[in-house]
Nucleic acid binder design. Structure first.
Length: 458
RNA sequence: GGCGUCGUAACCGAGUGGCUCAGGUGGCAGUCUGCAAAACUGCAUACGCGGGUUCGAAUCCCGCCGACGCCUCCA
């Protein structure tokens, strides 16, 4: 298995440090609002990777955190006049709903910052004791000059790094690059008691502490969005490595590219932020998942209406093949083709894997013997399951309504019955009129040897 | 300015120093169908520009043009 490691900028052969399990940590969301399409690329990508790793190595201990302490959360809570818990519970629940709709399996661990304050404080104390951090004016700061490899992940050196810095340097910092581990809270802000007074953790320490708590000092894979390379992951490395006496923090760093919308970065000012919560009102979650897997995870992905429509048609083809195999029992003991596995094991090349999947679809559609069909069905289902696709019955896929104004299944069946009566009496004008009526309502019909079937079109 | 990524047919999107170089959508044609649809078969369109290396480059090197990301909120 090959994975691209940001640390080296190359694909490297991957195997877990502990042969009995793979450990993987992925930075999760800060739950202060609904998550957008870009927020879901890491969960979908690393969910897929977890499936591949599980098949290859057996056990995968996978942690994806929920950040429930953050100043944006505080701001949202203050705005509504509620406890931060109200905000974080609401949006964590929404996040989980969206994940489920996208076919993302639960992770082994889902640590929350509020549940790891003791571990965070303990890690900060260790950093202070080893002279990698210092307290100043109620803050605790990590001293980046104390860590020789600082900048290695993001390939920046500390000198030039700060030369072009565009931020004001807080007066209590020993060095401009030092970052906050702990900061004081005002009386009206959420805070927790600590040796440095009542306060709250800085942005980066949570992941270090929680990763240590649930997975151990050295993990195999750490993932997240490309934008997190600096400063977030750079800082995590510094903290964890120094807190662990120099032990390697994460062996492989994987970063997914951004999702743009109509060639532009999503931003509130452009008003083009696509919330999955909203998208799900107009399309099945599986469509969104497929879009996110259509490009290679390290490349930028451009979300447009076209790519979503494309994905829906692809799923129609995939499910169409399965529907034609409805009466066939999938062969036992048959798994995904090797070429498909090879694609995924080559740095999670999902576009190539999808190409293999479509080759399989063509083969299945052409198969004549029941034995061949049974074999292809088994291969198709197994391969798709690695991508987290085709997890529902084809009939369910084709009949799912995407808006409440859609015709009911009963009404559709009724119209089809009327049409077939017309066809039987060779009254094709009426038959075609009814077909047109259905088509206008987004329902496409197919006359086959064993009756007429229907599906909702995009 | 520093670091990094990318430019493949109408669109999406892999890949590779050389086999008439994926796959999907869309287009055209054929088979099938009352007609369609689905499915199958066939066809067409490509590697940003200019140099270089090489027997051979879209693939490696250099330059240019263009797009984009990060540089202490950010998936």
């Amino acid at each position: 298995m090959q994975l691209h490691n940001t640390l080296t900028g190359q694909k490297e052969a991957f195997s877990p440090l502990d042969p009995s399990r793979v450990t993987m940590y992925v930075c999760g969301p800060t739950v202060y609002s609904f998550a957008h399409i870009g927020n879901f690329r890491p969960p979908v990508v690393f969910d897929t990777l977890a499936r591949v790793l599980r098949r290859r190595f057996g056990r995968v201990d996978y942690a994806r955190n929920i950040t429930d302490i953050d100043d944006k959360i505080n701001a949202a809570a203050a705005r509504e006049g509620v406890d931060i818990r109200v905000i974080t519970d609401r949006y964590a629940a929404a996040y989980h709903e969206d994940l489920k709709a996208l076919g993302v399996e639960p992770t082994t661990h889902e640590p929350r910052v509020t549940e790891h304050l003791p571990q965070i404080i303990a890690m900060i104390e260790r950093l202070i004791a080893s002279n990698h951090a210092y307290a100043a004016e109620g803050h605790v700061l990590f001293h980046t000059l104390s860590y020789g490899d600082y900048g290695r992940l993001s390939k920046r050196d500390e000198q030039s790094l700060m030369a072009g810095a565009r931020i004001e340097v807080a007066p209590y910092k020993k060095h401009a690059g030092d970052f906050v581990l702990w900061k004081p809270s005002a009386d009206d802000q959420p805070g927790w008691d600590s040796p440095w007074g009542r306060g709250r953790p800085g942005w980066h320490i949570e992941c270090s502490a929680m990763s240590e708590a649930v997975l151990g000092n050295t993990i195999d894979i750490h993932g997240g969005g490309h934008d997190l390379i600096f400063p977030h992951h750079e800082n995590e490395i510094a903290q964890s490595t120094c807190a662990h006496g120099g032990a390697v923090y994460a062996r492989f760093w994987l970063h997914n590219g951004f999702v743009n919308v109509n060639h532009e970065k999503m931003s509130k000012s452009l008003g083009n932020v696509l919330l999955v919560h909203e998208l799900l009102k107009t399309m099945p979650g599986e469509v969104i998942r497929l879009v996110l897997l259509t490009g290679h995870y390290r490349q930028p992905l451009d979300w447009t209406d076209d790519v979503a429509a494309d994905a829906r048609r692809k799923l129609d083809r995939l499910y169409g093949a399965l529907r034609d195999l409805a009466g066939i029992e999938a062969a036992a003991g048959v798994s995904a083709p090797q070429a498909f596995i090879d694609a995924l094991e080559d740095d999670l090349n999902t576009p190539m894997a999808l190409a293999e999947l479509f080759e399989l679809v063509r083969a299945a559609n052409k198969a004549e013997s029941d034995a061949d069909k049974a074999r292809f069905k088994a291969q198709l289902l197994d391969a798709a399951s690695l991508l987290g696709l085709l997890q529902q019955e084809p009939e369910a896929w084709f009949s799912q309504a995407t808006s409440e104004s859609d015709l009911s299944a009963e009404r559709i069946e009724q119209l089809i019955a009327e049409r077939n009566a017309a066809r039987k009496s060779r009254n094709f004008a009426d038959a075609d009129r009814i077909r047109k009526e259905l088509a206008d309502a987004g329902v496409l019909i197919e006359d086959g040897a064993d009756g007429t079937r229907w599906r909702r079109g995009g």
